[in-house]
Design a protein around this nucleic acid. Structure first.
Lengths: 242, 242
DNA sequence: TTGGCGCACTGGTATGATCAGTTGACCACC
DNA sequence: GGTGGTCAACTGATCATACCAGTGCGCCAA
């Protein structure tokens, strides 16, 4: 296959640059940004592009725009949302930030059991059938880790789609975007989890019977496999505990 | 005290209007928006304001903007993040959406125990002291539910700030924004939780000793009180289970 | 000390022109 | 019939230049 060519717009480039500088702490909370006119001059773009970028930064909680005064950098730890995770995940050199990886995996471990339980609150043979089908495909392709990874993501997407919890679903979207950004890096590390078909089958069975507790336990056991694998990998690279 | 007066900008108004129409399903996924020039004409604002709003909608995952073609409404259930919760929480008449409330409370129940556990992973007497101080203030003001509500939020904010998990922290920000939007409505409903100082004190003690499991259990017990209260209130109003 | 005034900043809004990507109709070719 | 080229009519993207509106400061008179 071929990859589509995407040319980022000017305002997109401006946004990325400012977002990066703020998240990398080059611009600290309380700092004032240059005036829009000055910024557009320094960046060599028209003022409209700068304004579009500033509006997005404002929405992301990274800057505060005040009519009559300069824009001020905000503390993303107090104002930001989960959308920031993909950017926070990698540093300026494109290397993974271990602390952020740990955080995301911990959050996944918190939510996954309840996502599974939510989908299994009532018996749902139709959904269980779809889940079983995915597990079966994984069983067939047990040697192809990349295929397993795709199927695993599909499995959880189905669960969260049918759980009826919109907060879980929106959080899942943010976490998926974070995850897919380091997709290839984690393929190998999470292989052990991808091969744990027993717990996935257990979740499917629990969904069929409407056994929320069984789904919760199987879900917890499943994602803990991946979490431990990540911890082990991070320890090996020497990322400190906190 | 007095409340500051804020006059929304044009692009803000445009954004709100389009966001609302999309989240209320008036504009469905796949629908094409009018051209920017047409939209600015219909809304009676300049094109820049429309473009600034569209950039924000794009960032929120609500529309896809394509050079050469019209912008297309996206499925927020697939593309949106937690930032959408505050808007989803209330319908066109300003009434609470019970399904969304349930979702948020469920997510809170998932995260809170692990947030408490994260803060208690290692002994932290300093933090424990601050937490105890908050609990003590709550004990003194036991009759003032609004004050209790503020202190409870402070308590959890301190926990999540010191837990070292950035994903929890960013999710907490989104949930807090959702929560504060219906602050007064929930004051009375959650009163029972606010008065449960025993579990909060238990969390503080666990933080002091570095007893993560104790913190997790106390946290779970605490938020479950509020969750059950919400469920009861929703049932009374006749919001169906799913 | 207080309040009013004015200037010099800032962001907010408006307009009109031009560049650039997308689509579909049309047509000449093989 | 399928291929590829051309062109016109859309669309968004970028630009330049005004002017309106809010903020903060210094100044000065009451």
């Amino acid at each position: 296959m071929f990859n589509a060519i995407r040319k980022p717009s000017l305002s997109e480039s401006v946004y990325r640059q400012l977002e990066d500088r703020i998240l990398r702490q080059e611009l600290k909370p309380g700092d004032e940004l240059p005036a829009e006119r000055a910024l557009s001059g320094q960046l060599g773009v028209n003022r409209g592009a700068v304004r579009e970028a500033l509006k997005r930064l404002q929405q992301a909680g990274l800057v505060a725009v005040r009519h009559g005064g300069n824009s001020v950098v905000q503390d993303y730890l107090e104002k930001g949302g989960l959308e920031l995770l993909p950017t926070l995940l990698v540093n300026e050199k494109g290397r993974l930030n271990g602390v952020v990886v740990r955080s995301v995996m911990a959050m996944r471990s918190s939510l996954a059991p309840d996502i599974a339980a939510g989908a299994a609150r009532k018996p749902n043979p139709a959904l269980a059938g779809e889940l079983d089908a995915i597990v079966e495909r994984m069983r067939v392709q047990k040697g192809d880790v990349k295929a397993l990874q795709n199927h695993a993501l599909d499995f959880w997407r189905k669960l969260v789609e049918h759980g009826g919890n919109i907060a879980f679903r929106l959080a899942f979207n943010s976490m998926t975007r974070t995850y897919t950004q380091v997709w290839i890096t984690l393929t190998g590390v999470l292989a052990a989890e991808f091969r744990d078909l027993d717990n996935l089958a257990g979740i499917a069975a629990a969904v069929r019977n409407g056994n929320a507790e069984a789904a919760r336990n199987a879900g917890r056991a499943h994602v803990e496999i991946g979490r431990r694998a990540i911890e082990k990998a991070l320890d090996a690279v020497g990322v400190r505990e906190d």
